[in-house]
C-alpha cells in the first residue's frame, strides 16, 4: 500500500523544553491510527507539526497530498452559515465551481444528518452538531489524510456518540485518519494501529488488541489503569 505520511526523527522544542523527541512512524493509505497518551504528552503538538501549524526543529515530515484538520473547539466561522462555512474553502482555495461544491456540501450534510441546518449559524447548533459540520468542512476539501485533535473532548457525554459515529463511518469508507482521543473504547474499535505517546516519545506502536489487552510497557499499563474504576 502507498504511504501517505512518513515521519522521520521528528523533534520539536519550545525553547529548551523538548515536546516531541525523535518521533518516527508511517501511515499507509486507508489506515486509521489512534494516538493516545496522558495530557501534555505532545499528541496535539504532533498533529500541529504534521499539518504545518508548528515548525519542527529536526527530522522530516513527508505528506503525499493535503491534510484536513478537525479541532477540539470546532472553530467554525461564526459569521457564516453552515453552508457558507462548507463552501468558502473549496471555492476560494481550490477554485471549484459553486454549483458542484454546493451539491457536495448538501450530500455530506445529509450523510451526517444535518441537512436541515444548512442555513443556520454556528451559534444555533449544539456542540455535537458543530463538530459534525467541522468534520464535513474538512472532508469537502478531499484531504489525503484527516487529523482529529480530541474532537469529542469539549462535548457533553450525550453528544460524543453522534460525532464518533461519523468518524466510524469515515473509517468504513477507507479514509486515512490520524486520531488523537481519550475515548478508549472508541480507539479500540476504530484503530488499525495505536500509538502510545508519553513524555514526547513513542512508547508503543502496536495493534489495538495488543495495546489494550497486553501492553508491553509499564508506562502504557499505568496509563490504561487511569481509565479503570
Amino acid at each position: 500500500m502507498d504511504e501517505i505520511l512518513k515521519i522521520e526523527h521528528l523533534t520539536k522544542k519550545y525553547d529548551d523544553i523538548t515536546v516531541l523527541n525523535d518521533i518516527s512512524f508511517t501511515v499507509k493509505k486507508g489506515e486509521v491510527i489512534v494516538i493516545v497518551g496522558p495530557s501534555g504528552c505532545g499528541k496535539s503538538t504532533l498533529l500541529r507539526c504534521i499539518n504545518g501549524l508548528e515548525g519542527i526543529n529536526d527530522g522530516k515530515v513527508d505528506i503525499q497530498g493535503k491534510t484536513g484538520m478537525v479541532f477540539q473547539s470546532y472553530e467554525l466561522f461564526p459569521h457564516m452559515s453552515v453552508l457558507q462555512n462548507l463552501m468558502l474553502a473549496p471555492i476560494k482555495v481550490q477554485k471549484r465551481k459553486k454549483d458542484e461544491v454546493k451539491t457536495e456540501a448538501l450530500q455530506l450534510l445529509e450523510r451526517v444528518g444535518l441537512s436541515s441546518k444548512k442555513d443556520n449559524y454556528p451559534r444555533q447548533l449544539s456542540g455535537g452538531q458543530k463538530q459534525r459540520v467541522a468534520i464535513v468542512r474538512a472532508l469537502i476539501m478531499h484531504p489525503e489524510i484527516l487529523l482529529f485533535d480530541e474532537v469529542t473532548a469539549a462535548l457533553d457525554p450525550e453528544m460524543v456518540r453522534e460525532v464518533l459515529d461519523v468518524i466510524l463511518d469515515l473509517a468504513k469508507q477507507d479514509k486515512t485518519m490520524l486520531i488523537v482521543t481519550h475515548e478508549m473504547a472508541f480507539a479500540r474499535a476504530i484503530a488499525d494501529r495505536v500509538i502510545f505517546l508519553d513524555g514526547g516519545e513513542i512508547v508503543e506502536d502496536t495493534l489495538p488488541r495488543e495495546f489494550f489487552d497486553a501492553p508491553h510497557t509499564d508506562r502504557a499499563k499505568r496509563f490504561l489503569k487511569t481509565f479503570e474504576f
Binding site: 499539518n51 479541532f71 472553530e75 466561522f77 468558502l88 474538512a138
Partner: peptide, 15 residues
C-alpha cells in the same frame, strides 16, 4: 485558533 483553522483549510494570509 480561528486563524489556525483557516490555515489548515489552505486559505492565503490575505484571504
Amino acid at each position: 485558533i480561528q486563524k489556525e483553522s483557516a490555515v489548515s483549510l489552505g486559505f492565503t494570509k490575505k484571504q
